[in-house]
Design a protein around this nucleic acid. Structure first.
Lengths: 226, 226
DNA sequence: GATACCATGCTACCATACAAGTATGGCAGT
DNA sequence: ACTGCCATACTTGTATGGTAGCATGGTATC
C-alpha cells in the first residue's frame, strides 16, 4: 500500500518521518486544516528540520499539505472536485485494464485471483476488516500486474491518498463485504470467460459506488472541506 | 506545460533550479545515464546545496533522476515499459474525457477550440514548431477544462515527462502538423455533433501514433534505455 | 475612538557545517 | 605480479544558524 512496501524499515530518517506523517494525515489524526511547522515536528520526532522539511515538500506535492512560504504549513482541506476526479481516473484506468485482462491473462495470475477470492470468503466469516481491505487492494493489483501495468497501478495508489482520506470519514463504514466479494467474483469470471464488456460493466459498477455520499460528508464535516 | 505556468518568475530559488533542471533533462542536454551531483549543480547555479537537493528529490519522484544514497545521482534511463504505460494511461483518460465533452461542453470552451484551430492553421503556414506544440497542448487542455477535469489534465502533464523525453529522440520529428490539425478538427466536430463514439475513435487514433517507433529508438540509442 | 505604525515572534527558505557511506588509487606486504 | 589495506576524495544524509517575509498585538498619533 505504500511506496516502501517490501523494504522495511525505512532506509532514511526522511522516509520514516514521511511515512509517519502520511499515515497520521490519512487517518485524520492530523485533521484537514490543522497547522504544523517544521520546528514542531522536528522536536516531536527528535530529528533535525531537514528530513521534516523534505517530507513536507513531498506531502505538499501529493496534495496532502499545502505550504505558504514564510507563513506556515497546513494539512490540506479535502477538495471534493479532486476526490471526484481521482475516482473518475481510477474508473477509466481500471475498466480499460480489465478489458485487457479479458483479452489475455496469464494462468498464474488467474490462480492468484482465485486464491485471493478464497481468502476474501474466509475474511467475511471472521469480520476482519483490515485484512479484507488488503485483499481488496491485492485483487486489483493482481489484475494490473497480469496485464503488465504495474506503473499504472502505482499511480492509482498515489491518487488514492485523496480518496482514502475522504473514505476515512465514514467512520463505521458500511462494510458491505459480501457485495464487494460478489463483484470481485464476477470480475474473475469475466476474465475467465474472456468477456471484456461484462468485465468492464462490473468494474464500472464497482468503482462508481465508493463516494456517492461525498455531499453528505461535506455537510457533516464542513470545516474539513474546501 | 509547467506547474508554474502563469506564475512567473518562479517564486523560489528551488523552483527556478527545478524548472531549469527539468528542462535540461527533457531536452536530453542532460542525457539518460549522466551523472550529476548536488555540489556540482549548486556551483553551476550559484546557490547552496539545499534548493538543488530539494529539486533532485522532486525530480527523483517524477522518475527523471534516480538517487543512490552516498553514491551519486543519475539521470534515469528511459524505461520503455513506463513510456508505453504513460501513453496507455493518457489514451484512456483522454478518450473518456472526450466522451464527456461530446455529451456536454460549454459554449465558451467551444469558441476557444475554434480559436485554437485557426491559430494552428496559421502555424502550419509559418512552420513554427514550438508554437504548434504549445497549441497542441492547449487544445487538449481546453477539452479537459470544459469538462471540469483540470486535475486529470495536470496528472497527464506529469506523466508526459517520460513520454516527451522519448519523443525528443526523434530529433527531426516528422512534423505531420497537417495530419495533427485534421485530427484536432475532427475532435472539435465530434464535440459539436455530440458524437461520443466518433470523438473517442479520433482520440484513440490520435494518441496511438506518437511512439510506434519506440523499438527503433531503443536500437538506435541503446545506452539511453533500460 | 479610529488609524497608522512598529516591535515582536512566528514561519519557511537558504546557506553552511558536519557526519557517514562509497569508490578509487597507491602502497606495502607477500 | 598479486593481494589486501588504507588514505583520500568524492557522494548524499542530517543538523544547525541566519535571513526575509508575514501575522499579531500594543502603542502612539490624530
Amino acid at each position: 500500500m505504500d511506496s516502501n512496501f517490501g523494504s522495511w524499515p525505512p532506509a532514511s530518517t526522511r522516509d520514516a518521518v514521511y511515512v509517519s506523517l502520511r499515515e497520521r494525515i490519512l487517518s485524520l489524526e492530523l485533521a484537514p486544516g490543522a497547522s504544523l511547522s517544521e520546528k514542531e515536528m522536528s522536536l516531536r520526532y527528535n530529528v533535525s528540520r531537514t528530513p521534516v522539511r523534505e517530507s513536507f515538500l513531498r506531502l505538499a506535492e501529493e496534495g496532502l499539505l499545502f505550504i505558504l512560504p514564510q507563513r506556515g504549513t497546513y494539512v490540506s482541506l479535502i477538495d471534493t472536485e479532486l476526490v471526484e476526479e481521482s475516482r473518475f481516473m481510477r474508473e477509466q484506468l481500471e475498466s480499460a485494464v480489465i478489458r485487457l485482462a479479458c483479452a489475455k491473462f496469464p494462468e498464474e495470475g488467474l490462480a492468484e485471483l482465485e486464491r485471493n477470492l478464497r481468502d476474501q470468503l474466509d475474511c467475511i466469516g471472521k469480520q476482519d476488516d483490515k485484512r479484507m481491505f488488503e485483499l481488496d487492494e491485492a485483487f486489483h493489483r493482481t489484475i494490473f500486474e497480469g496485464c503488465r501495468k504495474r506503473n499504472t497501478w502505482a499511480l492509482i495508489q498515489k491518487m488514492n491518498a485523496q480518496l482514502n482520506r475522504a473514505r476515512m470519514l465514514r467512520l463505521v463504514a458500511d462494510h458491505r463485504w459480501e457485495h464487494l466479494y460478489a463483484q470481485h467474483r464476477r470480475m474473475a469470471d469475466a476474465i475467465i470467460r474472456r468477456d471484456p464488456d461484462g468485465g468492464e460493466r462490473v468494474m464500472r459498477e464497482h468503482l462508481s459506488l465508493p463516494i456517492a455520499d461525498l455531499a453528505v460528508l461535506k455537510e457533516q464535516y464542513p470545516h474539513y472541506f474546501k
